[in-house]
């Protein structure tokens, strides 16, 4: 039997996308289903029994889970907006016509994202150690009178994590805005200047609205990344002091793989992250897509 040419080509197309599709089905969709089932069960090893929403109820009374959730939203609410604004400003500055050393500046600001999350976490941990460089320099210039134990204080430790995240990701996001700015024609700004707009007004009235798709995209990516923070929590603060800087992913890891494993409770918590990612992406798409 001979197939028509179009049919044959369509079949070849299916074969081309089969390996990737199968892998994603087996490595994402299937485990998501298993995690959902697991989250509704209780027990250890193979002895699992359905208990309905017990795992989800347990979260409501779990102070560590609540702290982890609070930390996640704290990082999300403080770090992400500052980072995106900084990234836009730096991109606009780099996009100045006839800027000298443009490539050098760009490379320098972009470079932090070549480091692994573990590496930079450890560099920041060392910089902010009680006997670390930050204390040395602040003491030397007389800005503080005695060494600060940054990572032993909850709020200081959170601030260090936020600083570290800003360092690692601002340049990464800047690249998206630079790519977005290339689509904005210079003449738009010239027209605005003739109409008497100053730099501040053009930034908020032209640049930001025209970058909206990129802002939306980076906001969704950053939200997704923040909800999954793990390497920093483990290597910078190890969740401390006393679990107060723990992130959700770190808590899930600890519940599953440190001490007595509790896979079912972990699965329930991981579903909360999934629902939050989906919900926040949905809200951001709704808010970001309002066309004037």
């Amino acid at each position: 039997m001979k197939m028509s040419l179009a049919k044959r080509q369509s079949l070849v197309g299916w074969l081309f996308l089969l390996p990737a599709t199968l892998l994603i089905a087996l490595m994402s969709f299937y485990p998501m289903l298993q995690a959902l089932i697991l989250s509704l069960q209780r027990g250890t090893g193979q002895q699992l029994q359905f208990t309905g929403l017990l795992n989800y109820q347990r979260m409501l009374a779990d102070p560590v889970f609540k702290t982890a959730l609070k930390n996640t939203f704290l990082y999300l609410g403080i770090q992400v907006p500052i980072m995106l604004l900084l990234a836009i400003i730096l991109a606009v500055l780099l996009n100045t016509p006839k800027l000298k050393f443009r490539a050098l500046f760009r490379t320098a600001i972009f470079l932090p994202c070549a480091t692994s999350l573990v590496s930079y976490s450890i560099v920041f941990r060392a910089l902010f150690a009680a006997d670390g460089f930050m204390n040395f320099i602040l003491l030397r210039f007389g800005l503080i009178s005695e060494a600060i134990n940054w990572l032993a204080d909850t709020n200081m430790a959170r601030m260090v994590i936020i600083l570290a995240l800003l360092w690692r990701w601002t340049g990464y996001n800047m690249i998206f805005f630079l790519s977005g700015l290339q689509n904005i024609s210079i003449s738009v700004y010239e027209a605005a200047r003739i109409d008497g707009a100053n730099a501040w007004q053009s930034f908020w009235k032209i640049t930001v609205p025209l970058l909206r798709p990129m802002i939306l995209l980076t906001a969704i990516m950053s939200t997704n990344g923040t909800l999954q923070l793990f390497d920093e929590s483990v290597n910078l603060t190890n969740g401390g002091p006393a679990n107060t800087t723990l992130t959700l992913s770190h808590y899930i890891y600890k519940t599953s793989f440190v001490g007595v494993p509790n896979f079912t409770y972990s699965a329930a918590m991981s579903y909360v992250i999934f629902l939050l990612v989906a919900l926040l992406a949905f809200i951001q798409l709704k808010v970001g897509d309002t066309r004037d």
Binding site: Q9, S10, V12, G13, W14, F16, L17, A20, T21, I24, M27, S28, F29, Y30, P31, M32, Q34, A35, L38, N224, L227, Q228, F230, L248, S249, I252, Y253, S256, F263, S266, A267, M269, S270, Y271, I273, F274, V277, A278, A281
Partner: peptide
């Protein structure tokens, strides 16, 4: 080779961009 069925499969695959690794790591490990 896109047609409406392949486009649909692509859209479904894109949904997994929202799947956090924490949510699949436990079943995958088991």
């Amino acid at each position: 080779y896109h047609d409406k069925y392949k486009d649909m499969v692509m859209k479904i695959l894109l949904l997994t961009m929202m799947v956090p690794f924490a949510a699949v790591m436990i079943p995958l490990f088991r």
